[in-house]
Amino acid sequence: MDIQGLAAIVTGGASGLGAATAGLLAAEGAKVAILDYNAAAAEEMAARIGGVGIGCDVSDGASVAEAFARATAAHGPARILVNCAGVAPAQKILGRSGVMPLEDFARTIGVNLIGSFATLRLFFEAAAGLESLPTGERGVVVNTASIAAYEGQVGQTAYAASKGGVVGLTLPAAREGASLGIRVCTIAPGIFETAMLKGLPEAAQESLGQSVPFPPRLGRPEEYARLVRFIVENEMLNGETIRLDGALRMGAR
């Protein structure tokens, strides 16, 4: 799929992986709508890349529907959807203060898993009505999981479960999308330079980076964005979850 001139929606696009992706897609000629829980940050990032910024809580169906309507009004129906919105809480099932509140687990599932599905379903609905491109495609979805889906650590039950759900969603969604000309892939990043990690002391960041076999450093958001671009452009990539982790396999802690 040629990115030039296509409408794209990036959730969680105001920072980190989403911001890098939104910037790269815009540089490739896409009309980008940035959806983010932080509406002001979404608008600020959109102004930088010539897109549109929209406040959105991906765990809320009504919020997603309103955001998609605004994105469509601005750029037309999207051909590209990249889901980067997510939360990464660290909480044990049974900690010093007692059991994990059920609402905390549900919130993580709501944002990371249900949020991915909430956008995917509306994207399917809109893209299904579009004319096929010369490749036979109507659209492509790239979801974001994590290597925690495979090697979740202590304190990551909610996060790993949510990202495992995103991995499990990928193939059946791609199979359903096949008859519509819609591809679905997922990226499972390792340890990347995000706002959360940048808040750690420099020594801690270096230590985390050194745990990666090669290259021995934290991943860069632009490396994630370049993989998104490759998935969009390569029409044979479908139904696959791609690890982007420098061969890292996480230990229990």
Results as ranks from 00 to 15, higher is better:
M1L: 14
I3M: 08
Q4W: 07
L6P: 00
A7P: 07
A8S: 12
V10W: 04
T11L: 10
G13T: 06
S15P: 02
G16M: 02
L17Q: 13
A19Y: 00
T21I: 01
T21R: 02
L25V: 06
A27N: 04
G29P: 07
G29E: 08
A30T: 08
K31T: 02
K31G: 00
V32D: 04
A39Q: 10
A40C: 00
A42F: 01
E44S: 13
M45C: 03
R48S: 12
I49L: 15
G50F: 13
G51C: 02
G55D: 03
G55E: 01
C56Q: 05
S59P: 01
G61I: 00
A62H: 01
S63K: 00
A65N: 04
F68E: 06
F68H: 10
A69N: 13
A73N: 11
A74E: 15
A78Q: 09
R79Q: 03
R79H: 08
L81G: 03
V82Q: 00
N83E: 00
C84F: 05
A85I: 06
G86C: 06
A88R: 13
A88T: 11
P89E: 04
A90N: 13
A90M: 14
I93T: 14
S97R: 15
G98D: 07
P101Y: 04
P101S: 07
P101G: 10
L102R: 06
G110W: 05
G110A: 08
N112A: 02
L113G: 01
I114S: 06
I114Y: 07
I114F: 03
F117S: 06
R121Y: 05
L122M: 10
F124W: 12
E125L: 09
E125Y: 01
E125F: 01
A127F: 09
A128V: 09
A128D: 11
A128G: 08
R138K: 15
G139H: 14
V140F: 12
V140D: 11
V140G: 09
V142D: 10
S146K: 14
S146M: 14
A148D: 14
A149F: 05
Y150A: 09
G152Y: 11
Q156C: 15
Y159G: 13
Y159L: 12
A160W: 14
K163W: 11
G165P: 04
V166M: 02
V167K: 10
V167T: 07
G168T: 05
T170P: 03
L171F: 05
A174C: 04
R175S: 02
R175T: 06
R175Q: 12
G177D: 03
G181L: 05
V184H: 00
P189N: 03
P189W: 08
G190N: 10
I191A: 13
I191K: 10
F192M: 13
A195Y: 09
L197G: 02
K198G: 01
G199D: 10
G199S: 12
P201L: 06
E202P: 11
Q205A: 08
E206L: 12
L208H: 11
G209P: 14
G209I: 13
S211K: 15
V212T: 15
V212Y: 12
P216E: 10
P221W: 01
E223I: 04
Y224R: 05
Y224D: 04
R229D: 05
N234S: 15
E235H: 14
M236Y: 15
M236V: 15
M236P: 07
I242R: 05
R243D: 11
R243S: 09
D245G: 07
L248W: 08
M250P: 05
R253C: 04
R253H: 12
